[in-house]
Amino acid sequence: MIKSELIDKLAKRLRIVSDTDVENCINGIIEQMSQALGSGHRIEVRGFGSFNLHYRPPRNAHNPKTGQKVFTEPKYIPHFKPGKDFRERVNNVFLGRKNPPLNSDNSGNN
């Protein structure tokens, strides 16, 4: 599934908002997420997982094409840790177990 397919599905499910609204909203969410992570916050979405930054120390690397040595900057990369429910749901399918239905009408918690 790619972004445009996701937007299509959401616009169909949520008749009141247009697909442009959905698209802007998703982009807004992504933007807010990078701002939150960039200002040192962790993002925790219950039932889904959390986003955090992982530190990558500087290292000596080289360009594989030219063999030239390059020095990489220390950096942080976004990391996602799936929540227990989500992790189990995906693995249950693999194990052939049934998942309980999602309670999508209570849009707040869980």
Binding site: L10, I16, C25
Partner: peptide
Amino acid sequence: EIAEILEKTLEEI
């Protein structure tokens, strides 16, 4: 509306 979009997004993912 944002809450609903977020929730459905997570669901679809």
